[in-house]
Design a protein around this nucleic acid. Sequence first.
DNA 1: GCTAATGTACTCGGATATCGAATGTCCGAGTCCTTCTGG
DNA 2: CCAGAAGGACTCGGACATTCGATATCCGAGTACATTAGC
Lengths: 159, 159
Amino acid sequence: MSEGVEWALHTCANLACADPGEAVPAKRLAAAFALPTAYLNKQLQALARAGILTSTSGPRGGFRLARAPGAISLLDVVVAIEGAEEAFRCASILRASPWGREGVDYRATCAVSQAMRRAELAWRRELAGQTIADIAATVENRHPGTAERVGGWLTEARG
Amino acid sequence: MSEGVEWALHTCANLACADPGEAVPAKRLAAAFALPTAYLNKQLQALARAGILTSTSGPRGGFRLARAPGAISLLDVVVAIEGAEEAFRCASILRASPWGREGVDYRATCAVSQAMRRAELAWRRELAGQTIADIAATVENRHPGTAERVGGWLTEARG
DNA sequence: GCTAATGTACTCGGATATCGAATGTCCGAGTCCTTCTGG
DNA sequence: CCAGAAGGACTCGGACATTCGATATCCGAGTACATTAGC
């Protein structure tokens, strides 16, 4: 799995702590984890295209969450970065077998494909059940005051 | 996910239909799905290293299942090909943050890492619950006689 | 003093290199069968 | 006719190219603010 997924999840969690009225530049978001700014920017663009973030150009511009943290599931973020197609993609190799038929959609009927799809659905269901708000709540519960501190750090040192 | 996983799963399912006393060469296994022989051989070697298959050199040599199909889970096959490390690997980027501590194992405590790990465990649990025998049984149930036919095809045209 | 236009700095956005891993291919090591020769 | 040895063919096993996507970087487009000139 792409490393950008981890960056995106942590960055979204950070943005959940920031003031919704203030946009945070990619430069600042990258500095939070000592990440390369330009590449993180690329991931943020993907999140923006997916409708998870909104972007603003110019001075006092940057990124902010497009909707409430509780309405952003981990699956949303993963799909935005990794793409919608499932990890195991059936190539229908059964069709090339001597006992394979032509007019059959092996992607749907092949037993192997079905088993893998079932596993992947379990994975997606687990991810869809967790939101950015849940992550933030867990952290806040373990280390009270973190959200306040992070939110302040993200918007400090602003012209 | 690597395409070799699909090849490995289908090939194991085929071997489950073959006579356990007869080894099937990689060439024949590849011909079953019109796959490149040399590359499939590479995957079969990985399965042999993982203890899923046993290999025999020389004439009348080839591969066969190392244990009963019911004792080979889909997870075993996937791990043999893809490797044991999980798809989402926490890089502990929290350590680089201004509020990060040095002596903390973020791979275990980070909320993001935990959430992703939980999803991946669900995926693995689903894969571990299905065996090659289950796949073979499903196919045989839908298309009776397939196992017999496949098994015969694999060992026919043998000196 | 107020307004409007202009310049400037800051930010996103996409186009452009670089690197590693998956993909694909090849030849050598080992083994078993067959065959031939000698008794 | 039988036994043993040598040859050959078949198969796995790992070493060697190639292609594709993830990684990393840079420069241009657009915007808001500050400044300045004019009324």
